[in-house]
Design a protein around this nucleic acid. Structure first.
Length: 927
RNA sequence: GGGCCUAUAGCUCAGUUCCGGUCAGAGCGCACGCCUGAUAAGCGUGAGGUCGUUGGUUCGAUUCCAACUAGGCCCA
């Protein structure tokens, strides 16, 4: 007879093979049909709000793993907070303006030989952004990220643009905005400023000259005493010499005064010998001095009626030149920074076409490149030239016309960090914000403390125009609240395109006069705003604008690069306009790197895309990855790590599947046994469940998701699969279906599942949902995401029970060790066929009593029918490893094996009708 | 070059955090077995680490300090 059919084996429709790439989209559809996000909003009414404000990704390209990491982390937080009782609206957004898109559009237009109007370019940029917003939206949704995807915020929407300009106006009217010159990359052919990304470096031949700056005044005696003394600089851009305002030395390098004929020349001491030889000079070092002691030394410009002062700069190197650097603050970034430090103006007497202005009478009107020769000749005639040669080196060129570019100071707009105390207030607010991890505080603090004023202007087309007017009469820029509001009324309706086409007379109210000089002729500002200003005011454009949201946000969550980016601009903008930080807490994650910890790059060929992972493994594996790794550091991903995660996923899935399978005949309404009335082992499992629930809740709240993963994974693998579920099989399979003891087990399985699925839902959102639908029917929300997070069951954990079993599991460990040897020696094939003999040494008499009392529990734990405990060591037994007072021996159990339950239990062979069954099995079958 | 960060078994992580001395752990993977009534599953046992390197403080450091190396982010 086939007794196997009489067992209660697991049955379930929950498949072992997940087939996630196919199944996930189905679940996604179910959520949409259910309007899960809308249902959550209803559920959240009257709950305390937890606001995670989405930082807008740039609407360009497909999403990469960094996006996936970021959005999944946000999704986990939104989901667990919602399940824990908060109301968590999540409004995703996109950053739409800016150079990368404009650059792409420019490239397309260029390849088509098109030259379009600004408004037409902007229209194409808008279409480009929209295209990628749609692409990214689908990709984010596919990750399982829940949010208001139908109503995201876009920084290019008219209402948002109006919000940007309103915040700009607040700065403007507070007097924090000023205009000043700052060097930018400039193409004199295309007549445009270039961003760093539009600059290509190519080999270029330039002059290379050594120039003397005569010393006027110094406290260095050997130099002061000399009849003639000069500092020697080296430059490859002679044309910047008319704008020279200083000479930089390194504070820690030594500089030598070298007697050369009648003259004393100053150069870096380490370079002196080589330089003299190169210049064809003979000389003798008189004395050396530290660079820092030269600060303030005064020189004369080689031909202009102007002084040039020695300043200190850390960026001076000895790798080329003389160790003394010619500084033209209007023609170089470092020069400019030094200029700011020393109060030098960014002087730049060069016009848009790259020609000298009349400020340089000798070369006025000449193109700077052509003027190089004249300048060299002038230096020679002045006796200031030590040597002129040519050099080839890497030099920036325009991406568009391929001509060499120049660095030139142009008028820019700035937000002052010190006007209105912005810097100090921002620093104060940094200390009121919770930074996770806490070193984030130091990082942003140092940046804000040391950063220069915020340059908010860009000479581009795709962005929010800086709305201001320039008086043709006095040249002053002006804007009034009335004028701005008038403009904003239009912007909010139609966007800002009109600014680019309409004349000032149409934009200004009739009769407008310059508040400064009364002039009535105006010019529009043509610059646009830095995109960091766009996203930096999202607290106004999104949080304040939506009554469902609000300011401040509870959390901003982005990669650690955003200490410089969005966290930074948002802080300055909010402190500057609201006098507060826009966030209560800021959480940062690291970057995605490969299995060796190296950054992913096309050149290294180690890039993995989320799309290929989703296609091969499913989004669930990506979510598991985000959870398993400690995101505070860099996050590694490699094919091997993915395989490991897939293994971990299978463990979760099979554990769930097994439990579901054993609930096939379970009707909660009819069969559920209250926890207190259950078998002891079931109550032990509930104690474990209570512990894990507690720990997992805490790990979620502490944002330590990797602990959530590890604890739940271990719980499934060890406490459930290896111990509880394994032991439970006998009870579940062998007994009568409606045996109270079996119902006790099933009730526990249901509890375990309902808890486990909810604890997993923020992470394995798809799988938890799939399994939730397979649970035995009982009143519960239609989606696991609509359920509340479980709290520990009352009465659990049972500490006494846990302590009792701690000891029993140690004994079980010793038995298992011996059982393994017994199986290998073919004494038994499986535990139910074994008889376990335990000997307890005389000195451990207390253990003997306990063991004898708890022998039934121990039998259950090691799944044997025959267990004997004897005083004194067993002569043929083996001593325990961890319990040396214990000796263990495994023998073949007496009697025959029952073919149904596989135990050597009494009664086999008694009944001629069922000679292969034990008494228990015959009882169960009623024969 | 500067600011901030990271470095524990093959992999992912605990832990030693503010008081340095049962803190060298877990899971996975791997190896060797068992089972075939979770079966492209399940169970048992076992082998793996001088806690990045080098110094210093200390009776004693993986844990404190410094330097270095490697890697990451942001600047320059």
């Amino acid at each position: 007879m086939d007794y196997k059919a009489t067992l209660n084996l697991p049955r379930t429709d929950f498949p072992m093979k997940a087939d996630l790439p196919r199944r996930e989209p189905e679940i996604l559809r179910r959520w949409e049909e259910l309007d899960l996000y809308g249902r959550l909003r209803v559920k959240g009414l009257n709950r305390p709000r937890f606001l995670l404000h989405d930082g807008p990704p740039y609407a360009n390209g497909h999403i990469h793993l960094g996006h996936a990491l970021n959005k999944i982390l946000k999704d986990i937080i939104v989901k667990y907070r919602q399940m824990m009782g908060w109301d968590c609206p999540f409004v995703p957004g996109w950053d739409c303006h800016g150079l990368p898109i404009e650059h792409q559009v420019d490239k397309e237009l260029k390849s088509q030989g098109l030259s379009l109007s600004l408004v037409e370019v902007r229209r194409r940029c808008r279409a480009y952004a929209e295209r990628f917003i749609d692409i990214q939206r689908e990709e984010f949704k596919r990750l399982g990220v829940l949010g208001d995807w139908e109503h995201p915020y876009l920084t290019m929407r008219p209402a948002y643009v109006a919000a940007i300009l309103r915040e700009y106006g607040k700065f403007f009217f507070s007097g924090a905005i000023y205009r000043s010159r700052k060097p930018v990359h400039w193409c004199a052919t295309c007549l445009t400023a270039l961003a760093e990304a539009e600059v290509e470096y190519e080999e270029h031949r330039t002059p290379s000259i050594y120039v003397k700056f005569p010393v006027l005044k110094t406290a260095w005696p050997v130099v002061a005493r000399a009849a003639k003394a000069a500092l020697v600089i080296w430059t490859t851009t002679p044309w910047t010499l008319p704008a020279n305002l200083a000479i930089a030395v390194h504070p820690d390098y030594d500089y030598a005064a070298v007697q050369v004929g009648e003259e004393v020349l100053v150069v870096a001491a380490d370079l002196a010998p080589g330089l003299l030889a190169h210049l064809g000079l003979k000389g003798e070092v008189l004395e050396t001095r530290r660079g820092r002691d030269l600060e303030g030394l005064l020189c004369r410009h080689p031909w202009l009626e102007r002084d040039s002062r020695v300043i200190l700069a850390e960026y001076v190197t000895l790798s080329a030149g003389t160790g003394l650097v010619h500084i033209a603050p209007g023609h170089g970034q470092e020069d400019y920074d030094s200029g700011l430090r020393y109060g030098l103006s960014p002087y730049s007497p060069v016009d848009d076409h790259g020609r000298f202005t009349p400020e340089v009478p000798e070369f006025a009107g000449q193109n700077v490149w052509e003027a190089n020769d004249g300048i060299i000749a002038l230096l020679r005639s002045r006796g200031a030239l030590l040597k002129a040669e040519t050099a080839t080196h890497s030099y920036p060129h325009c991406w568009r016309c391929k001509e060499p570019i120049i660095f030139r100071a142009t008028e820019q707009w700035f937000i002052s960090l010190d006007k209105n105390d912005l810097r100090r207030q921002a620093l104060k607010w940094i200390d009121k914000v919770t930074w996770i991890p806490k070193w984030g505080r130091d990082r942003i603090y140092n940046m804000v403390e040391n950063r220069p004023d915020w340059c908010i202007s860009r000479q581009r087309a795709w962005g929010v125009p800086i709305m201001a007017f320039h008086c043709q009469g006095c040249g002053g820029a002006f804007l009034t609240p009335e004028i701005l509001e008038r403009l904003l009324a239009r912007v909010a309706q139609e966007g800002a395109d009109f600014w680019f086409t309409e004349e000032p007379a149409h934009l200004l109210p009739p009769g407008t006069a310059c508040p400064n000089c009364g002039g009535t002729a105006f010019r529009k500002e043509t610059d646009i705003l830095d995109v960091w200003f766009d996203s930096g005011v999202s607290f106004a454009g999104v949080l304040e604008a939506d009554p469902e949201l609000g300011l401040p946000a509870d959390l901003y969550l982005e990669g650690s690069d955003q200490h410089r980016g969005w966290f930074h601009s948002s802080l300055l903008a909010a402190v500057g306009t609201r006098g507060m930080a826009p966030y209560r807490a800021v959480l940062t994650h690291g970057f995605v790197v490969d299995g060796e910890g190296r950054k992913m790059s096309k050149s290294l060929g180690n890039v993995i895309s989320p799309q290929e992972i989703i296609a091969q493994y499913g989004a669930e594996i990506l979510r598991l990855w985000v959870t398993a790794e400690d995101y505070r550091d860099d996050v590694r991903l490699s094919p091997a790590i993915l395989r490991q995660l897939a293994d971990a996923y299978r463990r979760f899935r099979n554990t769930i599947r097994f439990m579901l399978g054993n609930l096939a005949d379970f009707d909660p309404a009819r069969d559920y046994v209250p926890p207190a009335a259950r078998e002891e082992l079931d109550r032990l499992a509930l104690s474990w469940l209570a512990q894990i629930t507690d720990r997992v809740r805490k790990a979620y709240l502490d944002y330590e998701f990797h602990l959530v993963f590890h604890r739940l994974h271990q719980f499934c693998a060890v406490e459930l699969s290896a111990i509880y579920l394994d032991i439970l099989k006998d009870r579940l399979y062998i007994l009568k279906p409606d045996s109270p003891v079996r119902r006790s087990a099933q009730s526990t399985l249901l509890d375990l599942l309902e808890y486990l699925l909810r604890l997993l839902a923020p992470i394995l959102s798809y799988t938890a949902e799939e399994a939730w639908a397979q649970l035995p029917p009982r009143p519960r929300p239609e989606s696991v995401h609509l359920a509340d997070f479980p709290a520990a069951l009352t009465g659990f954990p049972d500490e006494a029970l846990l302590a009792k079993y701690d000891f029993l599991f140690m004994v079980r460990g010793e038995i298992n060790r011996e059982m393994d040897l017994a199986k290998k020696a073919k004494v038994v094939a499986a535990a139910p066929e074994a008889r376990v003999l335990l000997g307890v040494a005389a000195e451990a008499a207390a253990h003997l009593t306990v063991l004898q009392q708890q022998a039934p529990e121990l039998k259950t734990l090691v799944q044997v029918e025959h267990l004997e405990i004897r005083p004194g060591p067993l002569p043929e037994g083996r001593a325990g490893v961890e319990l040396p007072w214990l000796t263990v021996r495994i023998e073949k159990a007496p009697g025959e094996k029952c073919v149904r339950c596989w135990y050597h239990r009494p009664g086999v062979g008694e009944d001629p009708a069922h000679p292969q069954l034990c008494r228990l099995c015959r009882q169960v079958l009623g024969v």
